[in-house]
Simulated assay, not measured.
Amino acid sequence: MLPPQRPSKPMNYSELWTIDDVSNYLGVPKQTIYSWRHTGYGPKGFRVGKHLRWRSAVVIAWTLGLEKDE
């Protein structure tokens, strides 16, 4: 498995993230995120037309919640 890539631009934490952004941030393959979405696990995303998007704050809050559960 390849290491996660750094985003090419600094991320603004109020922006919407693509599947690539979420994948890079979490360090998991895109397919893992699609699988999580199918099972109801992972940060809550939504569709903008045919495109999946995630609020960066939601993804970050989800990871913080995982840390609290440890």
Rank of each mutant, 00 (worst) to 15 (best):
51 H>N: 03
66 L>P: 03
26 L>D: 08
7 P>Q: 11
14 S>A: 07
4 P>T: 03
30 K>F: 05
25 Y>A: 02
41 Y>D: 13
8 S>K: 11
29 P>E: 11
52 L>E: 14
19 I>C: 13
19 I>G: 14
21 D>G: 10
29 P>I: 09
17 W>T: 02
8 S>M: 00
19 I>V: 15
4 P>Y: 00
40 G>K: 12
27 G>V: 07
59 V>E: 02
63 T>L: 09
35 S>T: 13
12 N>R: 10
10 P>N: 07
22 V>T: 09
60 I>V: 14
10 P>H: 07
11 M>G: 14
42 G>Y: 15
59 V>D: 01
26 L>E: 15
1 M>D: 04
1 M>G: 08
9 K>N: 02
2 L>M: 13
23 S>L: 12
3 P>D: 03
59 V>M: 04
30 K>A: 08
21 D>L: 05
9 K>P: 06
59 V>Y: 01
22 V>N: 11
9 K>G: 05
44 K>A: 10
67 E>T: 15
42 G>C: 13
7 P>S: 06
63 T>S: 10
32 T>Y: 08
10 P>L: 10
43 P>N: 10
7 P>G: 12
42 G>D: 13
43 P>G: 09
45 G>S: 09
7 P>R: 13
28 V>G: 03
57 A>F: 07
25 Y>M: 06
4 P>Q: 06
61 A>C: 15
58 V>E: 13
42 G>Q: 12
20 D>H: 15
13 Y>L: 15
65 G>T: 11
39 T>S: 10
8 S>V: 03
17 W>E: 02
31 Q>F: 05
1 M>V: 15
15 E>R: 06
12 N>P: 04
55 R>H: 00
30 K>P: 15
